[in-house]
């Protein structure tokens, strides 16, 4: 990975301004994404995954404020771009597979026309009717849909087909990065798996980078090279997926994995993760996880742990990562 990264998120801090005060939604998050890499971001609802995804496209909510940090695409800071230049990057460079594809389609236009809309915006010179139809047919074939379906309306698609079509639309302008935000959450397990395999295959074929966002660890495990674990707006652990799954270093990652059943691994009791994530209007001092952390010491409630590199490409934000057991918990609590 000596090539310069495609995307760098550099100490990003984003707050939501509300009447009750600022909500610290993304706190000092840094990661990089290289060409062809599959990165996963996992965490509970409200931990800031989707906020990061939206920030990458600069489609954050209106009350969001970037306090500091940069998002660099090929070295260019997206946060500093004027809106009309940012628009040219959307979909052309960073496309998105949305959460809950049911509503990602405008019900009153044909699916093919909605894809065509993106093509018309980003292809110069503009594609002719024949070229566009040809391209949309190819995209549909790629995601396993009958090209004739392009002339249909979204409500005529099943949930899985709609999600496939969403992927086709995301691929339409050859983006270098695709963000898949809960790409399969609304689907049944069998369709989920098909879609994930499809997405993985396409990503390998086309060599694009992809960021998966999910609360479902199993989904992430299956398709990513690198995994980032988020808690309460912070990235607490980032490392190669295999490594993090086998030997999680952050207590939160450790407990999260302990609370997830493994089909192939040894039989063990599941350890539930107790407590609730903190209110981000008023996050805990020090490490944000310390109130729920069984490994917490006095230092954790006072000083915020920095991201520490513990192995090549494996970073953890914890004072006591050495205390965390080497393998996943066998019993309910350590």
């Amino acid at each position: 990975m000596s090539a310069p990264p495609l995307l760098e998120v550099d100490h990003l801090v984003m707050n939501y301004v509300t009447e009750k005060g600022d909500v610290s939604a993304v706190e000092d998050v840094s990661f990089t994404l290289h060409q062809g890499e599959a990165l996963g971001l996992v965490g509970e609802s409200g931990c800031g995954k989707t906020s990061i995804a939206m920030s990458l496209l600069r489609l954050q909510a209106e009350n969001a404020v970037f306090k500091s940090g940069e998002i660099r695409l090929n070295g260019e800071n997206l946060l500093a771009l004027p809106e009309d230049e940012m628009r040219r990057h959307r979909w052309k460079d960073i496309a998105m597979v949305f959460q809950g594809a049911m509503n990602a389609w405008n019900p009153v236009y044909r699916v093919g026309d909605q894809i065509r809309e993106a093509l018309d915006l980003h292809f110069r010179p503009r594609l002719s009717d024949a070229e566009a139809t040809e391209r949309i047919s190819r995209l549909f074939e790629m995601v396993g849909l009958n090209p004739a379906m392009a002339n249909r309306y979204p409500h005529e698609f099943s949930g899985g087909m709609r999600q496939r079509a969403v992927i086709a639309m995301a691929l339409s302008c050859d983006p270098s990065i695709i963000i898949a935000d809960e790409p399969t959450t609304a689907l049944d397990v069998i369709v989920q798996d098909q879609i994930l395999q499809e997405l993985k295959k396409i990503q390998r074929e086309l060599g694009m980078a992809i960021i998966y966002i999910s609360h479902d660890i199993a989904v992430i495990a299956e398709v990513t090279d690198t995994i980032g674990i988020m808690y309460a707006g912070k990235l607490v652990e980032l490392g190669p997926t295999v490594e993090v799954f086998a030997r999680p270093k952050h207590p939160y990652a450790y407990l999260l994995l302990s609370s997830t059943p493994s089909v192939t691994g040894p039989r063990r009791k599941l350890a539930p993760l107790e407590g609730e994530p903190p209110n981000l209007l008023n996050p805990p001092t020090g490490c944000r996880f310390h109130p729920r952390c069984p490994f917490a010491t006095e230092r954790c409630s006072i000083e915020e742990p920095p991201m520490e590199t513990i192995a090549d490409g494996h970073r953890v934000a914890c004072w006591n990562w050495r205390e965390v057991p080497v393998s996943i918990a066998q019993e309910a609590r350590p």
Partner: peptide, 11 residues
């Protein structure tokens, strides 16, 4: 959501 999609497409 489709309004967000439209924005994300760069419209």
């Amino acid at each position: 959501d489709f309004i967000l999609t439209a924005r994300a497409k760069g419209l």
